[in-house]
Amino acid sequence: MKRHILCLTTRLTQNSLIKTLPLSRFLSSKEAIDRRYHLFMLEKKRQYDKVGRIEKIEVQYKGLPNECTLIMNKDISTPYDCARHLSQFHMETSALALIDNTIYWDMHRPLTENCTLELQSFTCADPHQVNRAFWRTCSFMLGACATVAFKDSVPVKLHSFPGPDIRSGSFIYDVDLPSLGNWQPTHQELVTLGAEYVKLARLNEPLERLEVGEDLALEMFVDNEHKTKQIPSIAKANGKVTLYKVGKHVDISKGPMISTTGQIGRVAVTAVHKLNGSEDNDANQLYRFQGVALPTGVTINHFAFSILTDRARKLNTARSPVQRAADCEESESIAMKA
């Protein structure tokens, strides 16, 4: 901790940024994570208490083993609770819920009114939206992996991740590592990152969703200047920011996401590329973390998987958030899509 503050102060004096940085920036990354997690839990509890008198809703379930009507609690019960009434198989395999045949709903998001419910897995007939949710979750988890993988002496500032593009071959997360000027990860480091990823995924944590106001979101991400810049434009639409939590990691994403991290099966972190930006931008360089993953239960030949990892090693051509001088809006718009 002491060393960390020393490191920070030397960095600050070097860059002479003391004026622009408020005191709260002195949070170590671990403290910042804990703080964000506690704020998230407090807000979740507050929203749960606000429900008040419990009302009932009728959920018409369609699908295997047979159609039925479930009486659930309004604003409390989630599609996952409905799956718990059906079987363990439904709990483990369903990744996304389809409400009223139109809206894709997270498994851990409370239902708000009478509706029909279908549970979608990775092997349903048209898994397009499930795949997108899976890819988005993989990006999200890559951010969580990057924050825990480095030593305390290396500050990690997550920037953003673009919307899921499966055909590009890799999911990505753009991360700002201010203390690492010119880092090219060795093979061993990539394997370690992959191992951290697997460790996180095997914890089998649910992905919880929460919508919070702009002020609270700014308070939660006070240590991350990139996120604080993105939040106002994200909240422009309805004054709300959608957050997701897995374990202790909280991040901004539009969603929807899959049910639990245990549904991420075979995974490899394949490359970290440097993205160079312009001089006048705040973060003039970012690192693009790339990886490729498959859902649990998908078995694929090692040769076929090596084709996928080889392809995921190439730089993903999704738009870089720090490419041009007038890119502030662009980066925010990328964050909004994620």
Binding site: F122, T123, A125, D126, P127, H128, N131, F134, W135, I166, R167, S168, G169, V292, L294, P295, V298, I300, A304, I307, L308, R311
Partner: peptide, 22 residues
Amino acid sequence: GNKQTNNKYFIQNILLDAAKHE
């Protein structure tokens, strides 16, 4: 058994198809 491994919309098939295309 998984009967429908050749559904082209499964994520593994999308990834392999994109790799083939490239």
